[in-house]
Design a protein around this nucleic acid. Sequence first.
DNA 1: TTGTATGCGTTATCAA
DNA 2: TTGATAACGCATACAA
Lengths: 372, 372
Amino acid sequence: MRIVLVRVQQNAFTINMNRQALVMDKIINIRHIADKTALSITTVSRVLNGYSKQFRISEATTQRVLEVAKELNYTPNQIAQSLRLKRTNTIGLMVPDIGNPFFASMAKTITAESASRGYSVILTASNDNYKTEKELLSLLISRNVDAMIMIPCGKEKKHIEAVSKRGIPVLFLDRYLENSTIPFITTDNYEGAYDITQYLISNGHRRISCVQGATDTVPNNRRIKGFLDALVANKINSGYTITGKDFSIESGYIETKILLNRKDEERPTAIFALSTMTLLGVLKAINECKLIIPDDISVVSFDNQPFLEYLNPSITCVAQPIEEICKIAIGKLIDGLDQKQPVVANLFIKPTIILRNSVKIEPSFRPEGEIC
Amino acid sequence: MRIVLVRVQQNAFTINMNRQALVMDKIINIRHIADKTALSITTVSRVLNGYSKQFRISEATTQRVLEVAKELNYTPNQIAQSLRLKRTNTIGLMVPDIGNPFFASMAKTITAESASRGYSVILTASNDNYKTEKELLSLLISRNVDAMIMIPCGKEKKHIEAVSKRGIPVLFLDRYLENSTIPFITTDNYEGAYDITQYLISNGHRRISCVQGATDTVPNNRRIKGFLDALVANKINSGYTITGKDFSIESGYIETKILLNRKDEERPTAIFALSTMTLLGVLKAINECKLIIPDDISVVSFDNQPFLEYLNPSITCVAQPIEEICKIAIGKLIDGLDQKQPVVANLFIKPTIILRNSVKIEPSFRPEGEIC
DNA sequence: TTGTATGCGTTATCAA
DNA sequence: TTGATAACGCATACAA
């Protein structure tokens, strides 16, 4: 019995200590409310969590608790809740580069949607670097995120699937990895590329070059496939038309310079840039060569951005349904979390084509049959 | 004694339960390592936290612990650490709109710098809405962030200072509130605006209009002050030169339309847009009126963005030292956290002017004396 | 040199 | 209808 007594004394002492310390720190916890209402922390917790009816707690008690909670400006400590419930209501987001407007747009919708469903977002950027991606993955795990939304940087998937196997749902957005168990939601890159290529062809273009982005990402490769298939469907030679090596301004610039240095009959009449960054490089090269868009050369791009409308000329492009993708993603992810069901979703969302003023109707153009 | 015995039994039972449950969940904790090494959790904890020398733990023990930790793929549970240490190593970031490239750039540096110092960033966006800002502030508090970086949306400061008084360091970036106790780091907006206005004047411009952004933000007003002071210093009438009401494309568009509809002798020869969004609106209006930049009208802008270089013509602008500001901010904030010292910093960082091709030298221009 | 026991703030089990 | 208490995983004061 002595031991028990000692314990009780220590508890009492500790509680007093706490009370003092906490008042000084202005951190109010559930015990303060219990003390002030002369109720147990159990009852307080139940009222605060809306279980009054379920436990048939009297209306008077309920009101009193809520009153005191408000009076003391009580906020539950989510850290303690998380430890207890093994749930942080936090989603880890990993993008290649938040400075890239495309990913920033995604982050915008993701944070807004998450917030509206009571989740917070921890933001990380892999810089398209595998090592960084791996480190950040560990970081997000140790932060106990409930789930992750990733735009993976490469082809490597082992480290990501390991997370998934660990029981943390992972969902790929935009980019994904083939033959992987990780679900994804992405634009139908193939269709977007096919359609805008067909649009160029329908306007009489035959020598079309595609300046690509990162060759080890699925979206890039799907776009190329769409591009090539459109050429093939129109019986156009596609032997020398793809160039570029990453989604950077530099890559777009260098590749375009090379393209423009070809002799006249081999120079493309239209260039398809596979990303906005690529496009900027393409435009820079074209400007430097003193060529006029669309008179001397036509340009189209994958991805829309507000400023594309304000370029001179404005740029025709494939617009990805970013908001829709992100909303679906958060919806599926949190629903899955709520119901403790894995996310099942390999979705391709249709993009749209925004027609602007960067494509010339080639004079040689003679429409034959039906065109897109 | 019965009670004590019961307790011990319960403990033993619980530990077994845990072991099973945890193995199933693949969540390894410090106790697993203790069990496997036949050491106490204290020793394990000390080794894992690098206190081996301090507590003179034998090399053998140390190695064994590290070995087993690695073998079991142990990751410390940060939630438990946070609860215990009352520190989450998390920084709350609140921007008006992460879709805005300017704020996205800030987020980029902030997340990178934070990560390199062991902190994570919870991202929130106020949408420039006071009510949302207030809610998100509560959210970040309940998330137990160690500190906050905010770009406040308005003039209201009570709710923010309350956070600060609660002991959570808050630091304003870019925007700040006057007569507030909250420290800030921002661009020297006054100087940037003054200098670029002087540049316009030095190129012979006398009728200069300024299309402003949100009138209730300090940066906007500092820019206007710099603009006006430059006019005054050059004895230029400034009576009718300011217009605009927020940092949107629409505002820039509408105000420019009105400006361009003035009769010839009152129409500005140069327009100074106080943000990139504003600039886009200005450009749209100018394009619609079929005016040519810089021949018919000159344009400069506050804030640099990569694509400004690719507009036709490229746009002369004031570039804010975003990266520098954010690096200083994170440095000061985390240093303050480490040393438990409040952040003291009201800093104005000098911007730079990037000269491009959107300003015409007015024919009436006759240089007199020294120019900037 | 290592270990025992306690508490961080919360929820939930069991008891009353 | 309400309460006592264990447990979440960790760090640390105190003990040995």
